[in-house]
Design a protein around this nucleic acid. Structure first.
Length: 488
RNA sequence: GGCGGCGUAGCCAAGUGGCUAAGGCAGAGGUCUGCAAAACCUUUAUACAUCGGUUCGACUCCGAUCGCCGCCUCCA
């Protein structure tokens, strides 16, 4: 069995075949740093975090590069608006991005190069393209000669003439062909600028990724990733630049993830329908957001709603509760063994089924289904355990519980001690309520006394009183516990 | 206009050319409980947008239709 991935270039699922056995070279387009990141950016980070973790879980070494674009039209514009420098602005938002990633517990890539730190490599590549006749200087700019690459458009499935028939192409008198795109832009006064053979200027939008991926991963590497909206023109142009300059194939496989939508529309600044990562994290545990993201396949659009996050929070609690309950079990040698061979076999198949699901283009939704199915079985078995469970049974359940944690960790789930998570969740929610845990405990003690006296009226009264304050009581043999009620 | 994707139960969401169409949330009944809650058990799609075609057999392949969305301009 091997991992199969949906490759945008091939237009179908292909087996992962790395250039060097056992090593995956991965380049992902990171953010343009000029504003806070929204949850669409979070999806990108989370998806590739999961993909890298899964490939490592499956035994691959992964060299993961994700860049920062820190020079660009939007950055220049925003810096001017805020009366600051491009450098200050981009550094500020790179720092914010790092904070967001830390909150989400996203692992750092191996290399995080910045465009402004690779201007010599960029200039060198542009010069190669000019030397090969693939690009031409014009008035201090340099443009890529799009019709010189025979298969331009192969990634996005477009033909040059079809695109030219479209209405929305920027008119620019100095270009030979309206589809030609800028590799180098001459700088206006006050803009960041670097010296170049074509005069002072700055890199165009796409060239930095070509130059940086080449530097860190070589002319040809395994996988290039990003959001679906980057397919055209960004990734198409990267291919044109890199293959035009090196003559070698660029990335072998392309992974593109879907968007986060709100009310089924793509989040975007112009529609004002985006939520920043920090806004969402203010109200939701990072693992809740992760479970939400991974309950849908990465290529499918994901519609954000508070209801969906709420459902995910319950799902996560279900996972943690199962792990916590199993952690509390203890068995004894010579105790009663009660787990059937059938159950043992079924549950033991979890890892195999999970891997099958994930090998199929990182189908986390399916993989999570396998985990939840096992949780259901584990809960049932635990409930049916005799009062003197055998040590071997308890060990079996605990071993499975460990497996669940191990698999969930690929998605960044169940990373906290279960009891702690459940307790923190409770206290976090309590902060928003009009009652303290001391008061609750006091009422529980009073109710316990009432129940001993079989004063059911008073006992129920206390329970209802707490319920009004959104506290739900649970009686069990070990005593009474409480939790916040699940409200909408 | 060009290119691409999607349409599965109340909601979210996997999946397969034929074997019981995963899982989560919500709902119903039950076990447990003084009564509850939690947990567990059972249950909830004669059916996978519509219409045709291929096939012994399609939700799964092909074509058309309708609806939704994305890219073609900055975008994760």
């Amino acid at each position: 069995m091997t991992i199969s991935i949906y490759d945008t270039l091939a237009g179908k699922k292909v087996p992962l075949e790395t250039i060097e056995p056992g090593l995956v070279k991965l380049y992902v387009c990171g953010i343009t740093a000029y504003d806070f990141c929204h949850i669409g950016h979070a999806r990108s980070a989370l998806v590739f975090d999961m993909i890298v973790r899964y490939m490592r879980y499956r035994g691959y070494k992964v060299k993961f590069v994700r860049n920062f674009t820190d020079i660009d039209d939007k950055i220049i514009k925003r810096a001017a608006e805020q009366e600051t420098t491009c450098e200050e602005l981009s550094e500020r938002f790179i720092a914010k991005f790092r904070e967001d990633m830390a909150q989400l517990k996203v692992d750092d890539p191996d290399i995080e190069p910045k465009a402004t730190e690779h201007v010599p490599e960029i200039i060198e590549m542009i010069q190669e393209l000019i030397d090969k006749g693939m690009a031409y200087p014009a008035d201090g700019d340099v443009y890529y000669r799009v019709d010189r690459l025979k298969d331009y458009g192969k990634l996005s499935g477009r033909q040059l003439d079809e695109m030219q028939a479209g209405a929305r192409i920027s008119v620019n008198e100095i270009k030979e062909n309206p589809m030609d795109f800028a590799l180098w832009k001459s700088s206006k006064p006050g803009e960041p600028t670097w010296d170049s053979p074509w005069g002072p200027g700055r890199p165009g939008w796409h060239i930095e990724c070509s130059a940086m991926s080449r530097k860190y991963l070589g002319d040809t590497f395994d996988i290039h990733g990003g959001g679906k909206d980057l397919i055209f023109p960004h990734h198409e142009n990267e291919i044109a630049q890199s293959e035009g300059a090196t003559g070698a194939p660029f990335a072998r496989n392309w992974i593109h993830h879907g968007f986060v939508t709100i009310k089924d529309e793509k989040m975007s600044k112009s529609l004002h329908n985006f939520l920043t990562i920090r806004e969402v994290l203010a109200d939701h545990h990072p693992e809740v957001l992760r479970l939400f993201m991974f309950s849908t396949h990465y290529r499918t659009p994901l519609d954000y709603s508070e209801q969906a996050l709420h459902d995910s929070a319950l799902g996560l609690e279900r996972l943690y509760s199962c792990v916590a309950a199993i952690g509390e079990l203890s068995g004894s040698v010579g105790g009663t063994s009660a787990i059937s061979a059938e159950d043992r076999e079924k549950i033991s198949g979890l890892v195999k089924r999970f891997v099958q699901a994930m090998d199929n283009d990182f189908n986390t939704a399916h993989g999570l289904g396998m985990v939840f199915e096992t949780v259901k079985d584990l809960n049932r078995i635990r409930q049916q355990l005799p009062s003197d469970p055998a040590a071997e049974d308890v060990e079996f359940l605990q071993a499975l519980s460990c497996k669940i944690r191990e698999l969930c960790r690929i998605m960044g789930l169940l990373t906290e001690p279960a009891a702690e998570y459940l307790k923190n969740r409770q206290q976090g929610e309590l902060a928003g309520l009009a009652i303290s845990s001391e008061e609750i405990e006091k009422l529980i003690a009073e109710r316990k006394q009432a129940r001993l006296e079989k004063n059911w009226g008073r006992a129920d009264q206390i329970r209802d009183l707490l319920l009004e304050k959104e506290i739900e009581l649970k009686d069990s043999a070990e005593g009474t516990t409480w939790k916040i009620t699940k409200k909408g």
